[in-house]
Structure formats: structure tokens, C-alpha cells
């Protein structure tokens, strides 16, 4: 892996994030609704003086271009502004919520890839078998069903019918002060439903993709070679074939990361998961511009990082790409 490739990718990533900042800013300013009114509403009244002072305080009365430049300048210094609503720096709001989101997103990503790929490989082993048909149907349903529907169905199922998994929050109230293993297990217990909900759509896509990718690879000459040298069916499937079939899966995993983060917004809302997604959702309702922009900015940063990591692992996984720019 060469450094110039990495530097170039980082450069693109930074440009992309700058674009995101500008775009977010403009989109949100273009949306209808006056944030000063909202803030005033939260404060319990909206006299003209209050509105004026709010606008003054948050810089809302300056021309949009000036606001944008100020914002970019601040972002460059790591300052994402003050939340209209919480009266706290957005960066510390995000810092409180970033770990739950990362935990949720990464768990869902790992779950969907692992289960999806295993299903896909099993399906590819017998293209006309039951498993194969199951994967096709499952993938179609997975595409069609919106994530919040799955979430709400699971909430209903586990809240009233099989109350074995908590459907709300990240920690039990009575274990609030627990620490160590008890705390970890409690969080894990709460993680099951949201992570599964988020995983399920992508899982179906991975299953379908890895089925197709495996089928293609299994027909190739080097698989015949592997069999001709006496490799066992398992080694042929999981070593010789999967290593090659994993390449397109890896690409999609990188691309899906952005979708996963936006999916987390819905899942966190449904399950009341204390992450960035729920923060974004609530901030949108409150027209808390700095928070919305901060969350979007941070999320796009995560996507950029994920894409760079994907590119790097893709290069590691495919020797034909190593050393190329």
C-alpha cells in the first residue's frame, strides 16, 4: 500500500466533508421554519424583543454567506457551535452520543455481513436448493420492508408477546449504577433488538450479493484447480472461493456504511437508543440547526473514514490492486 494513495484518499475525503458542510448549511437554511420562533417557543413566549435577541445571540440576523463562512471557520477549529436547544456545545452533545451509535452501527454491520455471507455461501452451494430459494425470498422482503416497520414489529413482539429483550433505551434503570461486566451485559441485552433491526435489511442484501458472487467464483477455473489438487469441499468453499467472492462484498460493505448510519437514525428513534441518530431526529423536530449540522458533519466524517478503511482493506484483500495508484 503506498502513502500517496492514502494521502490522495484523505484529500478527497476532506474536500467531500467541506462539501457536506456547505450543502448541509444551505439545505437547512432553505427549509421552511424560523429557528428563532422555535427557540422562543421552547422558552415559553415569543415577543419581538426576544426574537431579536435570539437572532442576535445565534447570529441568525447576519447574511447567509457570512453565517456560512463563520460556520466553516468554526468547524475548522473543531467548534460545531452551540445547540439552540440544549445551550451546550454541539461537539460535546455529539461526544456523549457517539459511542452508542458506533456500537449500534458496527454491531449491525458485523451481524449483517456475517449472517448474510453465511446464508449466501450456503445458498450458492446448492443453487437450486431450499436455502437458495429462502435467500431470494428473504432478500426481496428485506429490500421491500422499511426499517422502522421491522423495528416497530419487533417492539410489539418483544414488548408484549415475548418480553425477553428490552425494547427501549440502552441501560436498565435499576442497573444504572452497575459497572463492569454487569453493565456490559445489560448494554448488550438492550443492543439485541436495535442491532438486529438495523442489520436485517442489509443482511438480506449481503446474502443475495454473496450468493451471486460465490456462484460466479465457484464456476471459475481456479476452483477446479483447487478441487483437482484434492482440497476438501469446505476448503474449496471457504478458502478458495470465499476469499475471491469477498471482494465485491467488501466494496458494498463500504458503500452501505452511509446507509447504515442513516438507518441508525430511524432505529435509534424507534428504540429510544441514546445515540446521534436520535439526537438528529429530535434536533430536526426542534429546528436546532447547529446540532443538525454538527451531526450530519460528524456522520459524513464517519462515512469518509469508513470508505478509506474499505479501500485500504480492499487493496489488502486483492493482490492485483496492491501497489497501484
Amino acid at each position: 500500500m503506498n502513502t500517496s494513495f492514502l494521502l490522495r484518499r484523505l484529500g478527497y475525503g476532506l474536500l467531500l466533508m467541506l462539501g457536506v458542510v456547505v450543502l448541509n448549511f444551505l439545505l437547512i437554511r432553505l427549509a421552511p421554519g424560523d429557528p428563532a420562533l422555535v427557540i422562543a417557543g421552547e422558552m415559553g413566549g415569543a415577543t419581538q424583543e426576544m426574537l431579536d435577541s435570539i437572532r442576535e445571540e445565534y447570529g441568525l440576523n447576519k447574511p447567509v454567506a457570512v453565517q456560512l463562512l463563520l460556520y466553516i471557520g468554526n468547524v475548522l477549529q473543531g467548534d460545531l457551535g452551540e445547540s439552540f436547544f440544549f445551550n451546550q456545545p454541539v461537539s460535546s452533545l455529539i461526544a456523549q452520543r457517539v459511542l452508542p451509535t458506533i456500537l449500534l452501527v458496527i454491531t449491525a454491520q458485523v451481524l449483517s455481513i456475517v449472517i448474510g455471507v453465511v446464508l449466501g455461501v450456503l445458498a450458492a452451494r446448492k443453487p437450486n436448493g431450499v436455502m437458495s430459494a429462502f435467500v431470494s425470498v428473504f432478500a426481496t422482503i428485506g429490500y421491500a420492508v422499511p426499517v422502522f416497520w421491522t423495528g416497530i414489529m419487533l417492539v410489539i413482539l418483544f414488548a408484549s408477546i415475548f418480553p425477553i429483550f428490552p425494547v427501549e433505551g440502552m441501560q436498565s434503570v435499576k442497573l444504572r449504577d452497575a459497572s463492569g461486566l454487569v453493565k456490559a451485559l445489560d448494554i448488550l441485552h438492550h443492543l439485541v433488538l436495535p442491532a438486529f433491526t438495523l442489520a436485517v435489511i442489509y443482511l438480506a442484501q449481503y446474502a443475495r450479493l454473496s450468493r451471486a458472487s460465490m456462484l460466479e467464483v465457484l464456476g471459475s477455473d481456479y476452483i477446479r484447480t483447487a478441487r483437482a489438487k484434492g482440497a476438501s469441499p469446505r476448503s474449496v468453499l471457504f478458502k478458495h472461493a470465499l476469499r475471491n467472492a469477498a471482494l465485491p462484498i467488501l466494496t458494498v460493505a463500504g458503500l452501505q456504511f452511509g446507509n447504515l448510519i442513516s438507518g441508525a437514525l430511524l432505529v435509534e428513534t424507534v428504540f429510544n437508543w441514546p445515540g446521534m441518530g436520535r439526537l438528529a431526529f429530535e434536533s430536526i423536530l426542534r429546528r436546532d440547526y447547529p446540532t443538525i449540522m454538527g451531526v450530519l458533519f460528524f456522520a459524513s466524517g464517519m462515512v469518509v473514514v469508513a470508505n478509506i478503511l474499505t479501500d485500504m482493506s480492499y487493496r489488502l484483500a486483492d493482490p492485483r490492486l496492491r501497489g497501484k495508484g
Binding site: S220, T225, A231
Partner: peptide, 19 residues
């Protein structure tokens, strides 16, 4: 296979595993 009997194929370009 590969022990007592072995086979060489026609397509050297694609018969080896690329990874």
C-alpha cells in the same frame, strides 16, 4: 486427486487462484 493423479489445465491464465 493431486496425490496419485494430477491434472494440468488448458487455461494457465485463469487456473491459479488470484488471491
Amino acid at each position: 486427486r493431486g496425490g496419485e493423479m494430477a491434472m494440468i489445465f488448458q487455461e494457465p491464465m485463469t487456473s491459479l487462484n488470484p488471491v
